[in-house]
Design a protein around this nucleic acid. Sequence first.
DNA 1: CTCGATCCCTGGACGC
DNA 2: TGCGTCCAGGGATCGA
Length: 302
Amino acid sequence: MPELPEVETVARGLQREVAGRRILSVTLGKTDFIDDPEALERELPGRTILGVKRYGKFLLLRLNADEKSGKSEEETALLVHLGMTGMLTPRPVNEPQPKHTHVAMLLDDGRELRYIDPRRFGRMAYLAGEALRGELRRFGADPLETGLAEFAQRIRERWARIKALLLDQSVLRGVGNIYADESLWKAKIHPAQLGARLKHEQVEELYVVLQEILRKAIVQRGSSISDFLDAEGLPGEYQRHHRVYGREGKACFRCKTPIRRVIVAGRSSYFCPKCQAPPRGWKKKRRAKSKAAGDVSKGRRK
DNA sequence: CTCGATCCCTGGACGC
DNA sequence: TGCGTCCAGGGATCGA
């Protein structure tokens, strides 16, 4: 579940490890998560990785100019989304490739930059010029680089649930399920509350605690709740600081009330039913677990 | 505009 | 030990 802090951690690691390296060749495995696999094979060999930065939940590997296209001042980049289980890490070429290695970029220092992703929920794309700018424009504000005024405007002009807004990458880029729940708990806002219904003070509190949580998580190198590892193969530590995420039935850290889990915006949402008052009309009845059983198990076909 | 449902995919947890 | 089933979740897409 790489979200902003995890992706930031990977980006910093890659910046240190592979910035300045030249890509000699590219080997592809399964390619169904790559926009245009042939573009990678055609464009990447010979190019130098100028730097690596985070853009929302994307890694942006900026590349040097493409001489042969004639548009040498055009900005080019390899965009990488880690999805749920993606990992991007440089390894010595003689080290055996783990299962689910789908992209291997041979570098000029005897290492290989490997993209490993069991579920292939990630995405990879080589983009240049206007295609690159257009892609980046689709996303909203970076929560760490945005002022309160813009943050508040983006939230309060919408009638969607605050949880949905926090997860919507065209509103804010980089927040995912963990940090959405953590920040809503800290700000004492129920996930089903409508953005437009939040008071100014609530939006300000959310803005402040979201930044605080994201910054602390970056310091702790992100959260490793299942299998997240950074570019150096190390797990993060921020999962130790989670206050609600994954804590269904456990005591709220503030008031000891058992944490609840409900589905909001299609995602598991953990919250304290006492600290985080539900909006009017929010059905607080049904047990989250008892209803999942009687569903169509044969529903999905191959 | 906002919603839920569905699909993508595999590994891990769990029940028997 | 081994099989079947369910579930996780970011994002795209589609119909309501």
